[in-house]
Nucleic acid binder design. Structure first.
Lengths: 202, 202
DNA sequence: GTCTATAGCCTGATAGAC
DNA sequence: GTCTATCAGGCTATAGAC
């Protein structure tokens, strides 16, 4: 195990390379479908050398999930109770869609995990995630009560934002297979904005 | 291999039990994450006996996918060009949401497959599926041109119906973790109907 | 048709030289 | 810190008795 105190430049570089490789492999094949060999090859290391940095396949996976969860929830955290309601929601939608376009592997990593029952991240869902969502749902409820947004179920509104935007990352192959040559992200921004504008306009 | 000509009662029963067990296991763990032992146990058969009915793990999986794909697309096929536009779309949405509630394993089976790049079903996506979606998108386009629906991108409208409804099956654990005690399907029907009503009302 | 036993491969992890 | 070699366990699939 590398010393905790003073990570050398090469340690920092290798750990980063391993996590990047792990994201690439785990997001494409899920935990069980990925092999340590694949990750080592993608990181440009031998298998034992990779296991010098992370004790096990499981350790890499959970380190990756933890590291990315914060990034993943930042757009929702940024929802400002003091902002203009409809614009705040639409800005959130735009950030989420942008993440589906720019960070599709991260989206698919969580999708894989959750579709299979979230065995390694369930605590975070009913813990931090629930707290954050409940808090923002309350904000939305207040906006509706103040007549700033059309009435909708706040929690389901948030689910709908997740599903609509992440669909473009998680089901990317299907979307592209159906659209043919057309780039999904050509029409998607205007479409999703229209959905939520028409849904919420007071 | 069982004879193709005259499947006995016991053969029919065992093949059905195997496919039911395979749906249970594959939908929960994906192809790679499932073992033949698990499926055999769930079907109440020994592993070699299971492999007497299906030549390999792969064979079971593809048989299952083929068998379910038709069922899965039926709601879209039922979209009637001669019906009342908004009601046709809303009926489709309702059927899809009902399938997420009643057949969540089927939804997760496809979700697992597609998130991982659809390695075993890609041909069907850019083949039959694309043809069907293109055809129905044309119907929607006509409805919009006739002023019966508010203008939206037809393909993305279909994607949004898929994502919103299937989210409740595919991300079930997350939805329930966030909602706590509240049953997702209590508010979901009215919510999704509201989304598409406000989006499409001319 | 169904079983027990096992072949043979793949994979996660470790030993030990350098 | 990094490698080659290898072990131990789990997995798909088959052999062969009943």
């Amino acid at each position: 195990m590398p010393q905790e105190r003073a990570p050398t430049r090469i340690q920092i570089k290798n750990r980063a390379a391993i996590l990047e490789a792990a994201l690439e492999v785990f997001s494409a094949h899920g935990f069980r479908g990925s092999t340590v060999d694949q990750i080592a090859a993608a990181a440009g290391l031998s298998k034992p050398n990779l296991l010098y940095y992370f004790a096990s396949k499981e350790t890499i996976y959970t380190a990756l999930l933890e590291r990315l969860l914060d990034t993943w929830l930042d757009p929702l955290r940024a929802l400002d109770p003091g902002g203009e309601p409809l614009e705040e929601i639409l800005a959130y939608v735009r950030r989420k869609l942008q993440m589906s376009r720019d960070l599709p592997r991260e989206s698919r990593l969580f999708a894989n995990e959750i579709v299979q029952g979230a065995p390694r991240i369930h605590a975070a869902l009913s813990g931090d995630l629930k707290v954050l969502v409940d808090e923002k749902a309350e904000v939305i409820r207040d906006w509706i009560a103040a007549g700033k947004l059309a009435p909708v179920h706040p929690h389901h509104l948030i689910f709908s934002i997740w599903s609509l935007t992440q669909h473009y990352a998680d089901f990317d192959v299907q979307v592209r297979a159906v659209l043919g040559d057309e780039d999904p992200f050509e029409a998607a921004p205007e479409f999703v904005e229209t959905v939520f504008r028409r849904l919420l306009q007071a």
